[in-house]
Computed example of a mutant assay.
Amino acid sequence: MTINYRCKKCRSLLFTENEIQPHEPNSNEVSFGYRRRGGGGDCNSVFLKDKLVWMGPCDQNNGKIECPKCHYEVGTYTWSGNQCSCGKWISPAFQIATSKIDKEKPFTFPQHN
């Protein structure tokens, strides 16, 4: 079962876990900003593998990503890349703030004996 990610404002489906770019915190921390070194913990954003159709043309070097239904800003894109809060550099970056989306886990029915 797949985890869905929805707009926090209108609950529209934006993407699934299959579209997320997995990454590990960068071990080469010295090249990154002081605040992002050795952050540990969870990332403040998720990065998508590719631009999704609902995002529009994304024809500038960088810009906002808005929910296609309510136009709530859920993230940003940068073709040259961006740094995650864990220190990992991701390029191109389709960065969605975890504070702007809801993670919808699949419902599982309890097992009765």
Rank of each mutant, 00 (worst) to 15 (best):
Y5A: 02
C86H: 06
I90W: 04
F109N: 11
G39D: 02
E29S: 13
N28H: 11
Y77I: 08
H23L: 11
I3H: 03
C84E: 00
S99F: 11
F94S: 01
V46P: 06
D42H: 12
E66H: 06
P110F: 10
Y77C: 06
W89Y: 09
E17N: 15
M1T: 05
V53A: 14
C58F: 00
D50H: 14
E17S: 15
K8S: 08
K51A: 14
N26V: 01
F15K: 01
N82F: 14
F94P: 00
H112I: 15
Y5W: 12
S12K: 10
G81L: 05
K9L: 13
H23K: 04
C10D: 06
G38I: 03
G33M: 12
S80Q: 09
K9T: 13
M1G: 08
C70P: 01
R37K: 14
G41N: 05
E66Y: 07
K103S: 10
R35A: 13
N82G: 13
I90Y: 02
I101F: 05
C43Q: 00
M55Y: 06
D102P: 02
S85R: 01
V53N: 13
T108K: 11
P68T: 06
K64D: 14
E66G: 00
E24R: 08
K88D: 03
S80M: 10
K103E: 15
K8V: 15
W54L: 14
T78F: 08
Q21A: 11
E24C: 03
R11Y: 03
S91A: 15
G39Q: 12
G38W: 11
K51T: 07
A97H: 06
M55P: 04
S27A: 12
G87D: 05
A93S: 14
C67D: 02
F47V: 12
T16L: 08
F32P: 00
E29M: 09
N62C: 10
G75F: 01
K64P: 01
G40C: 00
K64F: 04
T76L: 03
D102E: 15
T76V: 06
R36F: 15
P110L: 12
L14T: 05
C7D: 05
C84R: 00
G38D: 06
F32A: 11
R37A: 06
T98M: 15
F94Q: 01
G39K: 02
P22L: 12
A93D: 03
T98F: 04
W89E: 01
P110N: 09
